[in-house]
Simulated scan of single mutants.
Amino acid sequence: MTDSWIVLVLVALGVFLLMEIVAWAAHKYIMHGWGWGWHESHHEPHDDLFEKNDLYAVVFAIFAIGLFAVGTLADLPLVTAVATGITLYGLFYFIVHDGLVHQRWPFRHIPHKGYAKRLVQAHRLHHAVKGREGCVSFGFLYAPPVEDLTDQLRRSGRVRQEQDERRPAN
């Protein structure tokens, strides 16, 4: 049963989806908590190719590589499927978060509609707060509605004044 390719694909896809919850929790409670020392570099302007925050990707990659090794050496296809789901999430994170949202690639694309635009806007609202406290939108591939995030920031009183001044009136 666990060698069935359908089961293994479903496990990998399930882990991929579960990784958004894991990433949300890690972002909110680790990166904006005791792990702020690495993540702070992501919230500061810089022109370097890499930032200290990229070490989180290295940690997740080492974990996935370890699972691939265990799954392969111990002939445990389910473990390999879990590693595949984690790796796919990392690939999507790299494409969407680093590429589309933060424009860390040599080519630029700014989405003007739909899901991609909402994702970019939500992440910009995440960065609208200076420092680690009071941020919103901790997911990487899911973004709550921008209006909800804006209201949440307003209620917190932590949004930068210039952010309010730049946003067009409805």
Score class of each variant (00 low, 15 high):
Met1Asn: 15
Thr2Pro: 07
Thr2Trp: 14
Asp3His: 07
Asp3Lys: 14
Ser4Leu: 05
Trp5Leu: 13
Ile6Lys: 04
Val7Arg: 13
Val9Asn: 07
Leu10Pro: 11
Leu10Ala: 05
Val11Thr: 08
Val11Gly: 15
Leu13Thr: 03
Leu13Ile: 08
Gly14Cys: 02
Gly14Asp: 00
Leu17Glu: 09
Leu17Tyr: 11
Leu18Met: 04
Met19Asn: 14
Glu20Asn: 12
Glu20Phe: 08
Ile21Gln: 15
Val22Phe: 02
Ala23Trp: 05
Ala25Gly: 05
Ala25Ile: 01
His27Ile: 02
Lys28Gln: 10
Ile30Gly: 13
Ile30Leu: 07
Ile30Pro: 07
Met31Gly: 08
Trp34Gln: 00
Trp34Tyr: 01
Trp34Lys: 03
Trp36Leu: 02
Trp36Arg: 02
His39Glu: 04
His39Ile: 07
His39Lys: 04
Ser41Leu: 01
His42Arg: 10
His43Cys: 01
His46Thr: 08
Asp47Ala: 09
Asp47Gly: 11
Asp48Gly: 15
Phe50Ser: 15
Phe50Met: 06
Phe50Ala: 06
Lys52Trp: 00
Asn53Gln: 06
Asn53Lys: 14
Asp54Pro: 03
Tyr56Asp: 03
Val58Met: 09
Val58Glu: 03
Val58Thr: 05
Phe60Tyr: 08
Ile62Thr: 11
Ala64Trp: 00
Ala64Met: 00
Ile65Pro: 14
Ile65Gln: 11
Ile65Ser: 13
Gly66Tyr: 12
Gly66Ala: 03
Leu67Gln: 05
Leu67Lys: 02
Ala69Gly: 12
Gly71Pro: 00
Leu73Met: 09
Leu76His: 12
Leu76Ala: 10
Leu78Glu: 14
Leu78Pro: 14
Thr80His: 14
Thr80Ser: 13
Gly85Leu: 00
Thr87Pro: 10
Gly90Met: 01
Phe94Ser: 09
Phe94Val: 09
Ile95Leu: 06
Ile95Pro: 09
His97Phe: 10
Asp98Gly: 15
Gly99Arg: 00
Val101Tyr: 05
His102Ala: 13
Gln103Asn: 11
Trp105Leu: 14
Pro106Leu: 01
Pro106Thr: 10
Arg108Cys: 09
Pro111Leu: 08
Gly114Arg: 00
Tyr115Gln: 07
Lys117Met: 08
Gln121His: 14
Gln121Cys: 09
Gln121Arg: 15
Ala122Arg: 11
His123Pro: 14
Ala128Gln: 06
Val129Gln: 02
Val129Arg: 00
Lys130Gly: 15
Lys130Tyr: 11
Arg132Phe: 06
Arg132Pro: 09
Gly134Asp: 08
Gly134Thr: 09
Cys135His: 13
Val136Pro: 04
Ser137Asp: 12
Phe140His: 11
Phe140Ile: 11
Phe140Lys: 11
Leu141Cys: 08
Tyr142Glu: 03
Tyr142Val: 03
Pro144Asp: 06
Pro145Gly: 05
Pro145His: 06
Val146Glu: 02
Asp148Lys: 07
Thr150Ala: 10
Asp151Arg: 12
Gln152His: 08
Leu153His: 07
Leu153Gln: 07
Arg154Ile: 10
Arg155Gln: 09
Arg155Ala: 14
Gly157Asn: 03
Gly157Arg: 07
Arg158Cys: 06
Val159Ser: 02
Val159His: 04
Val159Phe: 13
Arg160Glu: 09
Arg160Gln: 05
Gln161Ser: 12
Glu162Thr: 01
Glu162Arg: 04
Glu162Lys: 03
Gln163Tyr: 13
Asp164Arg: 11
Asp164Leu: 14
Ala169Trp: 13
